[in-house]
Simulated assay, not measured.
Amino acid sequence: MTQPAISLKDITKTFLQGKGDESDPGIKVLKGITLDVAQGEFIALQGTSGSGKSTLLHIIGLLDRPTAGVYSLLGRDASNLDDDQQSDLRNRALGFVFQSFYLISYATALENVILPGLYSGRPRAELTARAENLMERVGLADRMHFKPSRLSGGQQQRVAMARALLNDPRILLADEPTGQLDSHTSGEIMKLFHDVHRAGQTIVLVTHDEDVAREADRIIRLHDGRIAEDVKA
């Protein structure tokens, strides 16, 4: 049997308050999440604000650590990796798309796409060719040398998707990627996610929007830090 892309076993996350000593019970945001995501699967993590969906995505993305539980990423136990090891695994295996586009305002769209590869050791010419190909793939071949201020919200999110794909990640993580977009533009961005999925990418997408969630193959609904429902879309 093929190993899962993502395997979570009884993951909890508690944020401490005040002094953080033994008298501080903290706030338990995740309360025992057990979940496997198959390679090539497209899942949506859905829930209201405070349900724990973004915290869970941050743990999956190695941007935060669980308080307890075991997390395996592509068959590797990521729970006990040090910061450098986590950073290396994150850069090689994961791509990120966020609600806020996080584009550098003074850089062109193409330069923004190239950015994640600058510390990989790959030749600049190779990175540029890859970035140009991705810009064509997301429909922005004629906008490569535009700065973000000259791009619409939907175009900026396309640049962000191209940037996320530069290092050819095995898994694409998206946190409310349509949250700042109108319904028409949201539909165009979701089409891109489907294109990426058909190319073999595993996708984990966080959303509060039921219509966006139904675009996935499977919906994991969170409530109060627990999995309330796990259904095929």
Results as ranks from 00 to 15, higher is better:
T48Q: 13
L151C: 06
P148E: 08
A162V: 10
Q155F: 11
Q156Y: 02
A68R: 02
N91T: 07
K53F: 09
L73T: 08
E132F: 02
G75F: 05
R158D: 01
D142Y: 04
K53L: 05
L94S: 02
R92G: 12
A160R: 03
S51L: 02
Q86I: 00
A109S: 10
G50T: 08
R124Y: 04
R65S: 14
T67I: 03
D83T: 10
Q157E: 13
R65V: 14
P116Y: 13
T128A: 13
A141V: 03
M144C: 15
N80I: 06
G95M: 10
A160V: 08
G139L: 13
S105R: 07
Q85W: 01
R130H: 10
F146Q: 11
L62Q: 09
A162F: 00
L89M: 15
Y106L: 02
L140T: 05
L118E: 03
V70H: 03
Q155M: 08
G75E: 10
D82T: 09
R122I: 14
V138G: 14
A107N: 01
P148V: 07
K53H: 08
Q99P: 09
L74H: 08
R65T: 15
T55W: 04
E126H: 05
Y106T: 15
G75S: 02
A129H: 07
F96I: 14
G50W: 07
T48P: 00
Q156M: 15
A107R: 12
L140D: 03
L56V: 09
L115A: 10
G50A: 13
R130F: 03
L151G: 01
H58R: 08
L165P: 04
Q99D: 12
P148D: 04
I114R: 13
Q86G: 12
D142M: 06
A107I: 01
R163D: 13
L151P: 06
A129F: 00
M161N: 01
D84F: 10
I104Q: 03
G139I: 14
M135A: 13
V159P: 03
G69V: 14
D64R: 02
M161K: 00
V138Y: 09
Y71A: 08
Y119C: 04
T128N: 03
Q99I: 09
F101M: 12
R124Q: 08
F96M: 12
M161C: 11
L94C: 09
F146V: 01
L94A: 04
P116V: 13
L151R: 02
G52Q: 06
K53W: 07
H145M: 11
I60P: 05
A160M: 01
Q155H: 03
A131W: 03
L73Q: 11
S152N: 08
N112L: 03
A109G: 07
T55S: 15
G139Y: 09
S152F: 11
N80R: 12
V97N: 04
N80Y: 07
Q156E: 14
N80V: 10
V138N: 00
I104V: 15
N91H: 09
L89T: 03
A129L: 09
L151M: 07
K147H: 14
M144T: 15
P123T: 11
